[in-house]
Nucleic acid binder design. Structure first.
Lengths: 175, 175
DNA sequence: TTTTATTTTCAATAATTATTGAAAATTCAA
DNA sequence: TTGAATTTTCAATAATTATTGAAAATAAAA
C-alpha cells in the first residue's frame, strides 16, 4: 500500500466525518441534513461543483440536490456560477464562516423571530382594566422582556458583523 | 357583553397567540412544539402549575406533559416545586429571558457544537504529504476557520452573559 | 424550428420525530 | 406493610418533514 493510498484514505475518512458531522449539526438547527451536507461538500471543494457531482458524492437524487441548492442560495450561503462555453451550472459555497454565521442569523431572525415580535408589539398595548390584573401584567412583563431582549440581540448582531469585517480585513492584511 | 368579558376574551386571545407563536418558534429551532408551548404557558402564569393544569390548558396527554417538562428541566429553563402538605408537583419557568437565552446557548453548544469541534481538532493535524495538497489545504483552512469562529463565539457568549448580569442588576436597582 | 442537455417541480413515498395512553414505577399516608 | 395518588416510561401510532423519480419546463445548439 503506497503513501498516496494511505494519504487518500485518511483524507477521505476525514472528509466523510466532516460531512456527516456538519449534516447532523444542520439537522439539529432545523436545516435539512442534506442541505448541510451539500454545503459541507462545497466547503471542502477547492473548485465549484455541478449538481451531478454532488449527486454522486452524496448518493442522493437529482431533485433533492436541486431543491437543497435552491435553499442554500436563498439563505445566501451558496452561489451559482457559469463556465464559459459550458451548459452546466456550477455551485460554490460561501467559505467565510463569519459571513455564513451572520447570513444565517439574519435570515432566521427575519423568518422566525419577526412574527413573534410583531405579535408582542400588539400585545404590549392591550387595554387597561382593573380585572385579571396579575395575568395581564405577567403577559406584558414577559412580552416587554422579550422585546427588550430582541433589541439587545440586534445590537449584539451588529457588533458581531462589524467584528467580522475587522477579522476579514486582518486576514487580508496577513496575506 | 360586560367589560370583564371583553377583557377576558382579549387576554385569552393574546395568550393563545403567544402560545402558538412561541411553539412555532420552538419547532423552527429544533425544540418540540409542545415543549415550547408548555414553556409559554408557564411564562404567562403568575403561579407555578401542575401537570394536570398544563394538560387541560394545552389539551395534550399526560405522558407528553411529563416528557416535555423533563426536557425543559434538563435544558435548565424550568424547575419543579413542592407545596407544603401537597402531593402534586408544581412547575414554573425561568422568566428572565436573558437567562433562558444563555442557558439554551450553553446547552446547544455542549450538545451539538462540541462534537464538531472535536472532529475538527483531529482533522487539523492530518499527516503532511505532497499529494492531494489542495484538497487537504482546503479542509485544513475550513476546519481552522470554523475553530477560530467557535473560539470567538465563545468569547462573545461570555460577554453576553456578563451583559445579562449587568442588565439584571439594573432591573433590580430600578425596583 | 426541432433536438438535446440540463434543471425544476411536485405527487407519491420513505424516514423521522412527536404524541398518546395504558401499564409500570414511585411516593407517601394510613 | 397496603393502597391511593401521582409520575414516568415506552411500544404503538399519528403527524411532520425529507426524499425520490419521472414528467414538465427551460435553455442552448443544430
Amino acid at each position: 500500500m503506497s503513501y498516496l493510498c494511505v494519504m487518500t484514505m485518511k483524507y477521505d475518512e476525514a472528509k466523510h466525518r466532516f460531512i456527516q458531522q456538519w449534516g447532523a449539526l444542520g439537522s439539529a438547527w432545523g436545516i435539512s441534513r442534506t442541505m448541510a451536507q451539500i454545503q459541507a461538500v462545497l466547503l471542502l471543494s477547492p473548485e465549484p461543483m455541478t449538481a451531478d457531482e454532488l449527486m454522486d458524492e452524496l448518493g442522493i437524487s437529482r431533485g433533492n440536490v436541486s431543491m437543497s441548492l435552491k435553499s442554500l442560495i436563498e439563505w445566501g450561503v451558496a452561489t451559482k456560477e457559469y463556465k464559459a462555453g459550458e451548459r452546466k451550472e456550477y455551485f460554490k459555497a460561501e467559505k467565510d464562516i463569519y459571513r455564513i454565521a451572520t447570513q444565517v442569523a439574519h435570515e432566521r431572525r427575519k423568518r422566525e423571530l419577526e412574527p413573534v415580535l410583531h405579535m408582542l408589539e400588539s400585545i404590549k398595548d392591550m387595554d387597561d382594566q382593573e380585572i385579571t390584573k396579575s395575568k395581564r401584567e405577567e403577559m406584558q412583563k414577559i412580552s416587554g422582556d422579550i422585546l427588550d431582549f430582541a433589541k439587545k440581540s440586534d445590537s449584539l448582531l451588529k457588533k458581531f458583523i462589524s467584528a467580522e469585517k475587522n477579522w476579514f480585513l486582518n486576514k487580508i492584511m496577513k496575506l
